[in-house]
Lab assay of single mutants.
Amino acid sequence: NQASVVANTLIPINTALTLVMMRSEVVTPVGIPAEDIPRLVSMTVNRAVPLGTTLMPDMVKGYA
């Protein structure tokens, strides 16, 4: 099973992502692959992402 990116904290809308905000976890449904974490750093989220939420491609500006 592939690990996905999961919010390690509440990420407010329009926040630039940092490494400490994200962790990898095997979850269903599958979200952004964990190997993309380095690429996500400094990208911003377009909605509030609660703790434990899987990051989906449409949640990160410029990812999809």
Rank of each mutant, 00 (worst) to 15 (best):
A7T: 15
T18S: 10
M56F: 10
A3Y: 10
T18A: 08
T54I: 08
P29H: 04
E25P: 00
P38I: 10
L40P: 00
V45Y: 00
L19S: 07
L40F: 01
R47G: 05
T44Q: 14
A48G: 08
D58A: 13
T53W: 15
N46Q: 10
E35T: 12
V41N: 05
V5L: 03
V45T: 09
A34H: 06
I37G: 05
N14C: 05
V20G: 14
P50Q: 10
E35G: 10
V30N: 14
R47V: 12
L55W: 02
N46I: 12
M59A: 08
V27G: 03
I32M: 03
A34F: 06
I11F: 02
G62P: 06
M21L: 06
P33I: 10
T15D: 04
Q2S: 10
A3C: 04
V60H: 01
V5I: 10
M59V: 13
T9R: 15
Y63A: 04
T28G: 05
M56R: 07
D58P: 08
S42L: 11
D36G: 07
M59G: 03
T15V: 11
V45N: 02
E35Q: 15
L40Q: 00
I11G: 00
R47H: 10
L10V: 11
A7R: 02
S4H: 00
A7S: 11
T18G: 05
I37W: 03
V27R: 15
N1C: 05
E35D: 11
A64F: 10
R23E: 04
M56D: 06
A3H: 12
T9C: 04
D36S: 11
L10A: 12
G52P: 00
V60W: 02
A7Y: 02
V60E: 00
S4A: 02
R39V: 09
G31I: 02
L10T: 14
M43C: 05
V27L: 05
D36K: 10
N1V: 09
E35Y: 15
L10E: 09
D58F: 12
A48T: 14
L51K: 09
A34G: 09
Y63M: 05
M59N: 05
T18D: 08
T54L: 05
I11S: 00
P12E: 15
